[in-house]
Simulated assay, not measured.
Amino acid sequence: MKMHDTCNMIEETQDSAVLDDVDLALINCLQLDPRASWRTVGDALKVDPVTVARRWQRLQDSGTAWVSARATGHGRPESCLAFVEVDCTTSNALAIAERLARWPQVLSVEHTSGPGDLTLLVEVRDMAFLSRFLLRSLASVPGIVSSRAHLVTEVFAIGDDWKLQVLDATQRAVMTDRPVRYKYAPTDQRHHGKTFDAVDRQLILKLGEDGRSSIAELTVGTGLSESTVRRRLAELTSRNQIVFRCDVSLPLSGWPLVTWVWGYVDPTDRSTIRALVERVSGTRVCMRISGGRANTLLAIAAHSLRETPITEVQLAQEAPGLVVLNRSVVLRSMKRVGRLLDDEGKSAGVVPMDIWAEAPEIE
Rank of each mutant, 00 (worst) to 15 (best):
G282V: 07
L224M: 13
L236I: 03
P360I: 11
T13E: 03
S108K: 13
M9V: 13
R230P: 01
C88T: 04
Q241M: 03
L207D: 03
L164E: 12
S147F: 05
L59A: 02
R181I: 10
N240Y: 10
F244E: 01
L322A: 04
V324E: 01
R288Y: 10
R232L: 05
L298N: 01
K206H: 08
V145P: 12
V47L: 08
V141Q: 04
E98Y: 04
L130Y: 00
R70F: 13
Q314P: 04
I362G: 09
V84E: 11
S91P: 14
T90P: 07
E318H: 11
A302Y: 04
R178D: 07
T311M: 10
I204P: 04
E344C: 13
A69M: 00
L120D: 02
S213I: 09
H111D: 11
V155Y: 06
G338E: 06
A128G: 15
S213W: 05
F129H: 11
A25E: 02
S146A: 12
A185H: 02
G345T: 02
T112R: 12
P256S: 05
K183M: 14
G114E: 01
V152H: 02
T311F: 06
H150F: 05
V180Y: 10
V41F: 01
A299I: 08
D354M: 07
